[in-house]
Design a protein around this nucleic acid. Structure first.
Lengths: 131, 131
DNA sequence: CTGGATCCATTTGGATACTG
DNA sequence: CAGTATCCAAATGGATCCAG
């Protein structure tokens, strides 16, 4: 597969020339995946080491098994984590970040940190806004 | 308004203690907004200065006027950008990042850079995966 | 324990056409 | 130019129950 996009690089802010702006660029697909709310929380959860399905479900408040499964499968397909099944009873399945997934910790951590630092400002702006 | 969450801070990766994991924490809302595909592209577009509606629509490939409007309005409500209407004919409306919005450039830039750098790896993993 | 299967409400966003 | 209005298809995600 060759989309012709793989060798295009980002430019410094202010001189940026598209790429992600092109709807056909695969960067869009990647942005969608890592921009997903649940994916972000999964990466955060796995930052401290491998976790089991139930651990993740309990850690990430409000996620249903179905959605968690979908998220994990998608991230596995994208090479962000690996799923290891132990042949035991009861079954045990462990999820762990791959090196690729680990490389996501920093940028995602930056976004999460921003969110935490600026929740107050955003909420304030939201309440200041006319209904 | 006091949700009781505003003074909780992030912990270093590995000792993180929740917060964004709580479904009731406003951090979730903020993550949703800045994690949005279109919001990311708008921030990127406005990084080099104010832009008009049509400029944004043309720059961001594949976005419809309706969705662009929705995105801009939401970001305005959240204090990320300001909308300036000039009383001219034909009408002119300019969008510019607020200081808060500008502070998003760095984390969003990090995520976008990651996406660009790892598109190849992600696509490769995706194609390696069983159908 | 780890999900798969099913059903369903809601949301999202795309296409298209139209207006102050 | 800068949107609105309308309609609608598809995807998202939640609830619930079931199974290897």
């Amino acid at each position: 597969m060759d989309t012709g996009y793989f060798n295009i690089h980002w430019y410094p802010l202010g001189t940026m020339k598209g790429n992600a702006f092109d709807p056909n660029c695969p960067t869009r697909l990647v942005l969608d995946r890592i921009g997903d709310k649940w994916s972000v929380l999964v990466v955060l959860s796995l930052s401290s080491g491998p976790r089991r399905f139930t651990q993740l479900r309990d850690t990430i408040g409000g996620i249903t098994p179905k959605v968690l499964t979908q998220t994990l499968r998608a991230m596995e397909r994208d090479g962000l984590l690996i799923r290891t099944v132990f042949a035991e009873v009861p079954p045990r399945v462990e999820y762990a970040l791959t090196p690729l997934g680990q490389s996501l910790q920093s940028p995602i951590g930056a976004v999460a940190a921003w969110a935490e630092e600026n929740v107050e400002a955003v909420i304030a702006a939201r309440e200041r806004a006319p209904v």
